[in-house]
Design a protein around this nucleic acid. Sequence first.
RNA 1: GGGGAGGUGGCUGAGUGGUCGAAAGCGCCCGCCUGCUAAGCGGGUGACGGGGGUCAACCUCGUCCGAGGGUUCGAAUCCCUCCCUUCCCGCCA
Length: 420
Amino acid sequence: MLALNFIREHPDLVRQGAERKGEPAPVDEILELDGQHRALLAEEESARSEMNSRAARGAGLSPGEREELGRLKGRIQELQQRRKQLSDRLSGLLLLVPNVPHESVPEGVSDDDNVVVRTWGEPPQFDFEPRTHYDLGEALGIFDFERAVKIAGSRFAMLRGVGARLERALSWFMLDLATKEHGYLEISPPYLVSRDCMVGTANLPKFEEDAFHVVEGDRFLVPTAEVPLTNLYRDEILDAERLPIRHVAWTPCWRSEAGAPGKDTRGYIRLHQFSKVELVKFVRPEGSLEELESLVGDAESVLQRLGLHYRVRLMCVGDMGFAQWKKYDIDAWAPGLQRYLEVSSCSVFGDFQARRANVRFRAPGGRPEFVHTLNGSGLALPRTFDCLLESYQTAAGGIVVPEPLRPYMEGLEEIPGPGE
RNA sequence: GGGGAGGUGGCUGAGUGGUCGAAAGCGCCCGCCUGCUAAGCGGGUGACGGGGGUCAACCUCGUCCGAGGGUUCGAAUCCCUCCCUUCCCGCCA
């Protein structure tokens, strides 16, 4: 969330930011409530001050004085009650104000306005008509969509045999890259989190319908490892020397993805459950934008090693989301589908999440300050898997295993086609 | 699930109704000393919020001792509810 202070001092900036993001922001109501709240606070505090100084005489108070103090106390309680109502409403409203985009974020309202900042590699060329991952995979018997639906319902998918193995190999490869080469510490977090954690990352209160809620214990299935990881140090004050902190986690992710399936969701694309390797960083405020660039680089290196063509897009202000300060998407090319699939989304939040989750740091001799948080997929497994199948398919319908994955596949160089 | 113990400042840990925002130690900051470093010595050092202000480092007020209620003129200290930690027993992958 934004600091109330900041909203007081820059209401126009906040209003404009929200408007450009296409989000409502109750700025006027906040300012109004804040004014009332402060007036009541002043009144309550001076009453308390009087009470404290008079009660300090302690046992020597006469019965008349005690009665008077009793009345004063009654007044304080009344003021306090009114003030608390205001302050509860105020903190509820503050959670609804979106983050203000960074000035380097391009204007725009939709996906069309996002800016391609670079591409890497070339789309692979085939001397045959490239197939889609679902055609390839079903022929190879490595997808089983029907039975997944049978046991869990629509929007669930299942991998079998060498397919399951290949996705696992991808996960291990990504984790090893992050931990061994990019300095991330691996975490295996809980897959259920408290309501507070969801508020901390700004998945709540605005986007509750996107998440799976577990009634027992009022917990949520993690929509991404961002949630447990970003909340790892909630309510803590970290020593400055510990920063930057980099964490990586493989987890399943659950999303309700309300809405009807369409042609864009055919295949192993848009599921209620999928797995993802997530990168999360906690950094000092200065330089957090550069940290975003290096985070994107970390995610890109996965695709580079795998030899998959991709593009990096800077999200425009209207397409970047409620909590983000600045955000890039990485889309890998799927030759069978003939389109890019979003395999990563990398964002910097400024102190927006850190305020919600109360994650601070302290330099020696200094006061506590909020950290800046970042996260990015490194990468989402199903879509990376799809692009890999489609990019490395052979004329016979087999799949060449990219070099870096072979150590995780017992040296297997190719999944032979159905007829081979 | 049953029973016991406990949750205090960045950390460890005293404190059972007013003089406690809270002893002590660690850490951190400033200085001294030691020809470097370590050790030693002296001083300082909580968070959050309101108001003031010759406006970052100053003054002032308030709140905060797991969270929320209650008792009382007055609560870290007493009562209730919840959360969490830990130990013993039971159950279980």
